[in-house]
Computed example of a mutant assay.
Amino acid sequence: MVVGDFSLKGKIAVVTGGGSGINLEFVRLALQSDCRVLVADLRLTRDAEKLVSNSGGKAAFTPCDVSKWSDLESLPARVSKVFGNDAIADVWVAGAGVFEPPWSAFLEDTETENYKQLRINVDHPIKLTRIAMKTSIAANKPAVVLIVASMAGILGVYASPIYCASKHAVVGFTKSMSQADIDENIKIVAICPGLVTTPLWTREEAKPQWEQFSFVADDCLTPQEVAVAMVSLVEDSKYKGGTLLSIAKGLPVAELEHMEATAQGPWSVKTWMDTCYQPIRAVWNNLRPKA
């Protein structure tokens, strides 16, 4: 048995990172489809607060630090508390993530025990999938798990190696879980967007990365565009378990991959790479013995 068509209407969704960006837009679309939503995030943006408060009880917020398994494991009980004792989530969106923050990055290397970025971007979606499967199988209900991955899970960028590694990990995990759709009636899929105008890029703290990565909002997807694709990925039977749905503006993935690997693309790409990699090269140059 496979999940097949899976309308959001009448369902319950849990969305980590639903307080802003892509995931907030998914929450908005889910509510418009008459889906109840538990938003699990560290905090809500002002827009998210308005959306939840005006939802007529169809949306609720629960504080959640996705790097803590205890917070993730509390989500099924929270669903029951908010939406009724027999309530069980049908859709689980692992949306929370970070992009090479200074406190967890390969170049700065300030952490002493582990890379928290990996706990957030890798451990969290894998653990949330396990929780979703355990909950749904015990209730003999179908479910969909949607992991927010990235085009970085297909390509590689020298300036953000941990982020790319984390997204490669969840891409591999999603592909590995395709059989769950057939065996357990649990569809596990991933969305792989390119650059999106989310707080990962637009917040004040991200400004140092704008110049490095040549960030231009007009070249990016909007959160709404990605959220629409996410809804299709959940609902449409043509997307089976293990599906990786990429959505991006610009060059096709294969061409980008080739240029990244060979550094022999058009002049604009070579210029972008030189700008993007300059801070990394500066760090390594400072480590070399002086003549």
Rank of each mutant, 00 (worst) to 15 (best):
I126E: 11
A87K: 09
R78C: 14
I182H: 15
S176L: 05
F173H: 00
D90W: 08
A190E: 11
A94T: 09
K127S: 05
I188T: 15
A165Q: 09
K134M: 10
F99A: 09
I88P: 05
P193V: 03
L107H: 13
S176Q: 00
V91L: 06
N140T: 03
I126D: 09
I120A: 00
R78Y: 00
G84T: 07
A77W: 01
F99V: 02
S80W: 08
I88M: 01
K175M: 05
E184Q: 13
V157A: 06
M177F: 06
L146Y: 03
T110R: 10
L146Q: 13
L146H: 10
H168T: 02
L128D: 09
T135I: 07
I191V: 15
S166P: 06
S166Y: 00
V98Y: 15
L75K: 05
S160V: 07
A143F: 08
P76A: 12
W103T: 04
I126M: 13
K175H: 09
I137Q: 11
I162T: 06
E184L: 10
R119S: 12
A138C: 04
V93N: 13
S160F: 11
W103G: 03
V98H: 07
V82D: 13
C192K: 11
G84C: 06
A143C: 14
C192L: 11
A149Q: 12
A180S: 15
K134R: 14
I126L: 14
G97K: 05
Y115E: 06
V91F: 07
P102W: 08
V171E: 04
V144H: 08
A77T: 09
I147W: 13
K141P: 05
Y115F: 12
F99Y: 15
M177P: 05
D181K: 06
K141Y: 00
G84P: 02
V171P: 07
Q179F: 14
A165P: 01
P193C: 03
E111D: 15
M151T: 13
R78T: 15
A169I: 03
R130A: 12
E184Y: 04
N121P: 09
L128T: 10
K141M: 09
N114P: 05
L128K: 03
A169K: 02
A139N: 07
P142F: 03
V91P: 02
I147Q: 05
N85I: 14
S176P: 03
D109L: 13
V170F: 08
V170E: 02
A96R: 04
E108W: 14
E108Q: 12
I88C: 09
P161C: 00
I147T: 14
D183E: 08
S136E: 00
A89M: 10
Q179K: 06
I188S: 05
V144R: 14
A152W: 01
G97P: 12
P125I: 02
A96D: 13
Y163S: 01
A165H: 07
K175P: 04
K167T: 01
A139M: 11
S104T: 14
P76S: 15
V148P: 13
A77V: 08
H168L: 05
